[in-house]
Design a protein around this nucleic acid. Structure first.
Lengths: 333, 333
DNA sequence: CTGTTAGCGCTTTCAT
DNA sequence: ATGAAAGCGCTAACAG
């Protein structure tokens, strides 16, 4: 491990001169500078950032802590990265692995402290853990659940989005719409989307029959597919499906296709998140667009404000959504 | 910023006693321990990991450096994470943002040094940058291109996979198969997949006409879709498409559907990567499965071996692939 | 069981 | 223009 002192010795100067050459802080004589650079090359020296970070009291790094790396969060992270980098900081992603059996708790508050700022996705994070996070560190919460007042928070207009999607399918002729992936449980994170579905049904004079609220074992395409197959097998009549996420919607689409039900002819289908793939999957999945760029901008904006020393009250942003109509609902293409 | 010294003062003990309590290293008297814990709680103390890292000379953290967070790399990262965590280390993802206009070069060698080990995806990384990476740090390269001998490297059996997919479609009746997303350029990273396609064609006594090698503007579904539409508009006759990635294949599927071409009736379609979605997109996309779990295990295994002090010669793993047949090719369901 | 000393590698401050 | 000293917050090693 080559230290700055090694370079200094090789070049016959003090460590401070090496530091000044490398950081271009104080002016250094041309010949000295040349000798230093030569020694740096010869020894293959690279600065030890850990030491610099300790000394500086900051790491110039922002963490985005997500429940998993794929799909929605991966796409969101790609939006966040350039915004963070534009402020001259690095972005790293970490998982709330929440592997309780592991002795290592991934989301220790201490770990968050190594970052200058943290974007924390609250999906799959128990509120107790969240309560322990009382830190002065700039932090912005991201996700669809209620959080303590004092946190900055960006969430989606879930109810409004679910309402849009459901009302659209009703307008296009559906009368019995499943709420796939919603839960009857009031404390559940997908509650807002179920409420949006309910309201849309009621406003159209339709029943929001609890039998049409169909939970999924997990928020994957497989989970959506299996729940959908079960409904089909049960004989429950339906002519529309509102899926809580595009991933779940894809599973539903798969099940419908295998069962010989045509989309949108027999059943209309709409999802939530507007993932890139939803545009391309025939016949195109109608979806609630969550404006990932806007969410990323809002979150990074709040974070940056905190990192700049702002100490005003926390803000709670509800990012607007819009419906993108495609072929999986009638009139979509 | 609460320091350990603050806790020590509040509890009326020395900093070492605080350290011993928190790390459970040396035994501490029960009453002392209680007072320390009380002070920790009262002050809301959290250990400064940067200082600990400097002192310890390691960070217990592994970085996976990827070109982008979504799709293939997001899914791979989810496989890598538990393997790294099983060894008691944290995993973080970083992007090779390669934003040249930014003054910040994301992939400075110094930055890699803050990690105990690095998994580095070489996709979208110029060889020059790679050559600069002469470090003692444990590092494993990941991706489809040639790299200097002295690096540990995990890549896929690209040629074999492309051959499998192409031969399968030929066997099922296709005679004019497009190589979508491949490039005629020999130095290109998708060369191996083009060669596999060529060989499969030749072995079946078919021409591997360069006109059937269709590049894409970028490896997205949109890129695949537009290239596909252009081919259709050109009138070039074809009855099969081998797409270099599932993402590109999805774009092709979209274009085929919009053009009234049935899959697999008029055109068979196969992709590469076997993303989760490919199983669910009707009629199911036949794809080359790259065994992400195996790739993750091989890469993390090599990395762990290096981190344990192994100094033998570098290994170059070629991960085997297999074809997963689905509805987008005949006989798939 | 508890305290003191030293030092991880770097940079801020002050002196020359 | 260059160098010496001090210290960021922590913990290994040793002393008591």
């Amino acid at each position: 491990m080559v230290r700055m002192a090694d370079v200094a010795r090789a070049a016959g100067v003090s460590v401070m001169t090496v530091s000044n050459v490398l950081n271009e802080r104080l002016p250094v004589g041309e010949s000295t500078r040349a000798r230093v650079m030569e020694a740096v090359e010869a020894l293959g020296y690279e600065v030890n950032l850990t030491a610099r970070h300790l000394r500086a009291g900051r790491t110039d790094t922002v963490a985005f802590v997500v429940p998993s790396f794929h799909d929605y969060f991966g796409e969101l992270a790609d939006q966040v990265a350039p915004l963070v980098e534009a402020e001259g900081r690095h972005l790293v992603l970490e998982r709330t692995s929440a592997n309780a059996e592991q002795e290592m708790e991934a989301l220790s508050v201490a770990r968050l402290r190594i970052y200058d700022g943290v974007l924390l996705s609250v999906a799959g994070l128990d509120l107790e853990t969240l309560a322990r996070v009382r830190t002065a560190k700039p932090i912005v919460l991201l996700g669809e659940r209620d959080v303590p007042e004092h946190f900055n928070h960006v969430r989606l207009a879930n109810e409004s989005g679910a309402h849009l999607a459901t009302a659209h399918m009703i307008e296009r002729g559906s009368r019995r719409i499943l709420a796939l992936g919603c839960s009857p449980d009031a404390t559940h994170m997908m509650t807002d989307r179920r409420v949006g579905w309910e309201n849309a049904c009621h406003e159209a004079g339709l029943a929001a029959d609890p039998a049409y609220v169909v939970p999924v074992s997990d928020y994957t395409s497989l989970g959506g597919r299996e729940a959908m197959l079960k409904v089909i097998a049960s004989g429950l009549p339906f002519d529309g499906v509102f899926a809580v996420t595009d991933i779940v919607a894809l599973g539903a689409l798969s099940a419908l296709a295998d069962s010989g039900l045509r989309v949108p002819g027999d059943v209309q289908l709409a999802g939530f998140d507007n993932l890139d793939m939803s545009r391309f999957i025939p016949p195109g999945i109608t979806s609630v667009d969550v404006n990932r760029e806007g969410v990323a901008e809002a979150a990074v904006g709040l974070l940056h404000r905190q990192m700049s020393g702002w100490t005003g009250p926390a803000e709670h942003v509800v990012a607007p959504v819009r419906l993108v109509v495609r072929g999986s609902t009638r009139g979509g293409a």
